[in-house]
Amino acid sequence: MPTITGFSVPVGCALIPGGPVGEHQVPGSIKPGDTLLSVEHITDGATPTRVDRTSEFSIHATKGGVIENDTTNTTGDYLHVLWASNEG
């Protein structure tokens, strides 16, 4: 996982397809115990837009590679996920 110079822990990010409320697969090494830093809902268009949806998502408690959405259907759009690893 890449690190940012001067940042104390590895961080990861992924741009994934949106979907219905529920689980979303995230490529990379996101896992239980990591810290979810942000989830942005990206809507494509002539001028793409973003909405911060971090409070509606969590890292799955027992499965690696998964975040969970409790509220908003993002089907047809995209999600940008940023997290910090608990392995520093």
Rank of each mutant, 00 (worst) to 15 (best):
G19N: 08
D70Y: 08
I42L: 15
L15M: 08
S29V: 03
R53G: 01
G45T: 02
P2T: 09
L37Y: 13
N73P: 00
S8R: 12
G65N: 05
G65V: 02
A61K: 12
K31S: 14
F57P: 05
A46C: 01
H60L: 02
T71K: 13
V39F: 10
I4D: 02
D70L: 13
Q25P: 03
G18V: 01
G19F: 13
G28C: 04
G33N: 09
T71H: 06
E87Y: 03
S29L: 03
T62F: 08
N86E: 13
V9D: 11
I42F: 12
P20A: 15
S58Q: 07
G19R: 11
C13I: 01
G45C: 03
T5I: 06
L36R: 09
G88M: 03
G65K: 11
N69I: 01
A84E: 10
P27Q: 06
P2A: 11
E23L: 05
T62H: 09
L79M: 02
G18Q: 01
D52I: 03
I30H: 07
G19I: 06
F7G: 00
P32D: 09
G18H: 04
V11I: 15
S58Y: 05
V51W: 07
I4L: 13
E87C: 01
T43G: 00
G88P: 12
T3L: 07
T75H: 02
P20M: 10
F57D: 03
G88R: 09
T49E: 10
A14L: 03
A61G: 08
Q25T: 15
R53H: 14
Y78T: 01
R50G: 03
E40M: 13
I42C: 10
M1V: 03
P27V: 00
G19S: 07
F57I: 07
S58T: 10
T43P: 00
T43E: 14
T74D: 07
G28S: 04
I67T: 04
F7I: 02
E68Y: 09
I16S: 05
G64C: 04
I42R: 15
T75C: 04
S55M: 07
A61D: 08
F7W: 15
L37H: 07
H80Y: 15
E68P: 00
G22E: 05
N69H: 05
G88K: 06
A14W: 01
V51H: 12
V66Y: 12
Q25S: 14
K31E: 15
F57Y: 15
E56S: 12
